[in-house]
Design a protein around this nucleic acid. Structure first.
Length: 464
DNA sequence: CATTAGGAGATAT
DNA sequence: ATATCTCCTAATG
């Protein structure tokens, strides 16, 4: 069935062999390859997994998986208590058929693969071990059965890719990727299981399978032939990483460039990442430093600060560094430039805005376009932030939830997030607080008994 | 110095 | 017309 996919403003990466959607140097791929294997739990946040399509039940403090999905997507977390007045409730998108993933244990131990990378020109110190990411088994994605550790090399990946392609050609119709048998090759698994990029790019589910792969007839020159197919998959995976980074920026209100992070940005990022990977929390004081300092930390220093999670944090940061290095453009670079007609047309313009409008659309039942998010009221927005303490807890949190008393811990970030939401790049806390003060008159908020700095209180119907 | 308080005009939807 | 946004002056800790 030849499906012609409407391309909703984005051109799928041309299947032509010469050009790729994402220009990636071998070094980048290698870099990512080292990183990706250990990284993200498969498609952690962009879509709801099939089994979780309804909002989380009561709200027991830690049924966070769904919350994470909501939060990360900028979805308002479904309120624990009944209904939120005019806050739009969000129906999650019906799970896409491509979206079959499950959390499967990931084991990887890396071995320098055979690609020789003539020097990844990173301005940042690489891991002292040189291998960059050594994934320890203490993280919870690892299975209790440690003997499954395996080494990966490109040849295996290629073979596996071949197997996959064969099986793909047999059930071409099935939009699901069947990667059941091989349990061990994470990179491939994660790259292939994560099919969301295919969907986002309007690829047919298996277009990547059409890339012909020539088996290494040329004996010794192995390095040379690695690139073509894996490359393609990886470039998509890279795309995915970009989006993840961008999403995180949006959610946390931080710059994509770690060097620009303030110390509270650093804390927010660390906490978010720990949370995201289900790693044990560490005192945020351990990471009391700004972005420049964070970037300068070695893997060992990470591990000192967070014995259970240091490697993951370090690896994640590597991805962000790479992002920075590649100059991934994002709406975050300085003030947004609203020029709607960028010179480079439609190669991958389906980044962040799309995600947001999808959110908006979904929340409107698919009917109305856009309108949702810019119309939000400040008090609603604040409650939204308050509803995801594990993400924004360092910026704003409840002091007395039942009475609607909350405290703004990081006025700069809250204002930044608000400005972003309202498309007001010049927003600051001065203005935001002025708006809050208007609420006194309107009876939406009131001053607390003993007035404390940065502490506000919702009035009655508004607080829950 | 950051924050609070509130007036007043401008602006976006 | 409403809900801010923006700018500003004055007070406070």
């Amino acid at each position: 069935m030849p499906q012609t996919v409407p391309r909703s403003g984005c051109s799928p990466p041309s299947a032509s062999q010469g050009e790729r959607a994402v220009p990636t140097s071998p070094a980048d791929i290698h870099h990512l390859l080292r990183l990706l294997g250990a990284e993200s739990p498969p498609e952690p946040m962009l879509h709801s997994p099939p089994t979780h399509t309804k909002p989380p039940p009561p709200y027991p403090e830690d049924n966070n998986y769904l919350e994470r999905i909501y939060d990360f997507e900028g979805f308002p977390t479904p309120s624990p208590s009944s209904d939120e007045g005019s806050i739009p409730t969000v129906a999650l998108q019906p799970s896409s058929p491509y979206n079959s993933f499950q959390y499967s244990p990931i084991f990887i131990k890396e071995e320098p693969n055979r690609l020789t990378v003539p020097g990844f020109a990173s301005p940042y110190p690489l891991s002292p071990s040189g291998s960059c990411v050594s994934y320890s088994s203490n993280n919870q994605y690892s299975s209790p059965v440690p003997q499954q550790e395996e080494y990966i090399n490109i040849e295996d990946l290629l073979k596996e890719n071949q197997i996959l392609q064969d099986s793909i050609q047999q059930n071409y119709i099935t939009p699901k990727i069947e990667v059941e048998e091989p349990r061990d090759h994470i990179l491939l698994r994660s790259a292939l299981e994560d099919t969301t990029f295919q969907k986002r790019l309007n690829l047919r589910p298996f277009e990547l399978g059409s890339v012909k792969m020539e088996e290494s007839s040329g004996g010794p020159g192995e390095e040379a032939l690695v690139a073509p197919d894996i490359d393609r998959v990886l470039s998509m995976a890279i795309e995915q990483s970009k989006r993840d980074v961008d999403n995180t920026c949006t959610v946390l209100g931080i710059s994509p460039d770690p060097m620009q992070w303030s110390s509270s940005d650093v804390k927010a990022w660390v906490m978010f990442t720990l949370r995201h990977f289900n790693l044990p929390m560490v005192p945020s004081e351990y990471f009391a430093m700004d972005g420049t300092a964070l970037v300068a930390l070695t893997e060992e220093e990470f591990n000192q600060r967070a014995p259970q999670a240091g490697s993951t944090l370090y690896a994640q940061l590597e991805i962000w560094k790479a992002a920075r290095h590649e100059g991934w453009r994002s709406q975050w670079t300085e003030q947004r430039a609203p020029t709607p007609a960028p010179p480079a047309p439609a190669t991958d313009d389906m980044s962040d805005d799309d995600a947001e409008s999808i959110v908006a659309n979904v929340s409107q039942g698919g009917g109305k376009v856009k309108t949702g998010s810019t119309h939000i009221h400040l008090w609603q927005f604040l409650k939204e932030l308050l509803a995801s303490p594990h993400i924004h807890g360092s910026a704003i949190r409840w002091l007395d939830r039942s009475n609607g008393v909350f405290k703004i811990e990081d006025s700069v970030r809250v204002a930044r997030l608000w400005g972003k939401r309202k498309n007001r790049p010049a927003m600051n806390y001065d203005k935001l607080s002025r708006s809050i003060r208007q609420y006194y008159k309107k009876g939406i908020m009131k001053k607390t008994e003993r007035s404390q700095r940065l502490v506000y209180q919702f009035c009655h119907p508004y607080c829950l």
